[in-house]
Nucleic acid binder design. Structure first.
Length: 455
RNA sequence: GCCCAGGUAGUGUAGCGGCCUAUCAUGUCUGCCUGUCACGCAGACGACUCGGAUUCGAAUUCCGACCUGGGCGCCA
């Protein structure tokens, strides 16, 4: 496509009206308007309208905050007054005026408008109450997510989530990691266990990937040594809980020449660093979520063996817990209450972990796998991996899987595969546990669960 | 997938065989109001998920469908 043609068609799209309100460069962010600002042009959403008769107040909200606009009706021009009468809540407006220092106004300043322009009028009634006088159910919120996110406490969740992901990338990049993105469309299951979503891929059957596990391991064979992938994973499980999603964002890490102890340290240090960064960089967001002092976890986290964990659970639960079982939801909760902070469960029975987990040489019934737990739920799981071809083939067969369907993966183990270890960390669970969100879906803009496919 | 609880104005709720011409809040509209900050006051507007059944009478009971929340299983 030619640049000239592009520019030509763009110009034709600019209508006179757009040009007139196009003075966006004059705009000042709401939080940057201080008592020292003499004149200001702000653009934002109408958060609230309070009309007292001779005096009216508008609260205008943008990405940065809320400012009060005061309209003394007798002192203001008839033009401004007539536009004011047309304003509806949540409309986008542009207001230019004089900034006055005044103690009774929020933030110690207010704007007295010399001109008001409605850039985009909002319809009414609103599908949900942005001001939160009336609460809305999760379902209503997700149906109208764009309005829901206008609420400062909701946008704060996503600003903090952004900070978390940025911190992960920044921290690991500085440690020499290569960030990769691998295919989400795959020809076969990677791990067994979880159900996959089938998709139509021309004349072939394909699936949405449940995990980048096999690809990141293949990148160990490729010699990248340290890789990070942040991307979607898809699980077709029909679960209906506050901690499961059918599409989640996984933070996946794999490290060559490392054992499970080293990657556990990497993980706990990263968790601490994330909390510290959020505490420093997201003070306003935390405040809007009413989190006064974010409790930063302390490394090293306690390490419980699987056997100890089962011991705690069987002592606290009426139904008991047996060695060799997966850790049930109630056991998870019981152990979490006992420990009270982030902790690892290590030394899992080989029988209940995937084929790629490395068994201990002197006790092969136990493997070098771990889960990182928050008292409320599991956040991450990882392991030192099997890097020997024959052993891996053996373990795939042990799990009742067919090595032939893993040939592309297995071949990476035949030409010099370094020992390696890694983990996958659930972004939504990290956000939900950090911020005390009751439902993990609140940590996703557009959650996909058993029943929800839109928006 | 199994179990439990639900579906009432735009939103959040009360009512659970006749007192329902359905409560309250918020919202919207109209009027009054010059320092609100969940502004206030007065008035108005606006709803029983759908389909069948029981009954003299159903928002209310029963059956089915659809939808939702939660617990469990499975999973990370």
């Amino acid at each position: 496509m030619s640049t000239t043609r592009n520019r030509h068609s763009c110009n034709r799209l600019i209508t006179p009206q757009v040009r007139r309100i196009g003075g966006f460069s004059m705009r000042i962010a709401v939080n940057d308007v201080t008592p020292e600002t003499k004149r200001a042009t702000i653009i934002g959403w109408v958060h609230e309208i309070r009309d007292l008769g001779g005096l009216a107040f508008l609260l205008i909200r943008d990405r940065t905050g809320i400012i009060q606009v005061t309209i003394p009706k007798k002192k203001i021009s008839a033009e401004v007054l007539s536009v004011f009468k047309e304003i509806s809540r949540e409309s986008v407006v542009r207001i230019e005026g004089e900034v006055k220092e005044i103690e009774k106004a929020p933030g110690g300043r207010e704007l007295i408008p010399s001109s008001i322009e409605i850039i985009s009028k909002s319809e009414s009634p609103l599908p949900l109450d942005v001001v939160e006088k009336v609460s809305a159910e999760l379902d209503t919120r997700f149906d109208n997510r764009f309005l829901d996110v206008r609420r400062p406490r909701v946008s704060s969740v996503f600003k903090i989530r952004s900070c978390i992901l940025h911190t992960v990338e920044d921290s690991l990049y500085k440690k020499g990691f290569t960030q990769i993105t691998t295919s989400k469309i795959v020809g076969s299951a990677t791990e067994g266990g979880t159900e996959l979503f089938p998709i139509a891929y021309f004349e072939k059957e394909a699936f949405l990937n449940q995990s980048p596990q096999l690809y990141k391991q293949m990148m160990m064979a490729a010699g990248l040594e340290k890789v990070l992938e942040i991307g979607p994973i898809f699980r077709a499980e029909e679960h209906n809980t506050t901690k499961h999603l059918n599409e989640a964002t996984s933070i996946d890490v794999e490290v060559s020449f490392a054992d499970h102890f080293e990657v556990m340290k990497l993980l706990e240090d990263l968790i601490v660093e994330i909390y510290e960064e959020v505490a420093v960089s997201c003070t306003a967001e935390l405040a809007s979520l009413e989190i006064n002092n974010l409790k930063i976890p302390v490394a090293p986290f306690p390490r419980l063996t699987y056997e100890e964990a089962i011991g705690i659970a069987s002592g606290k639960l009426a139904e008991g817990a047996n060695y060799g079982d997966d850790i049930s939801t109630s056991a998870e909760r019981a152990i979490g209450e006992e420990i009270g902070c982030h902790y690892f469960i290590v030394d899992w029975p080989t029988s209940i972990r995937p084929y790629y987990a490395m068994p201990y040489e002197d006790r092969p019934s136990v493997c070098k796998a771990f889960d990182l737990m928050h008292p409320r739920m599991e956040l991450s799981s990882g392991a030192e991996r099997v890097h020997d071809y024959d052993q891996l083939v053996h373990q795939i067969k042990e799990k009742g899987l067919n090595p032939d369907s893993f040939s592309y993966y297995l071949s990476a183990f035949r030409y010099g595969m370094p020992p390696h270890a890694g983990w996958g960390l659930g972004t939504e669970r990290l956000v939900a546990t950090m911020l005390g969100l009751q439902n993990v879906r609140e940590a996703v803009l557009f959650p996909r669960d058993r029943h929800r496919l839109v928006p």
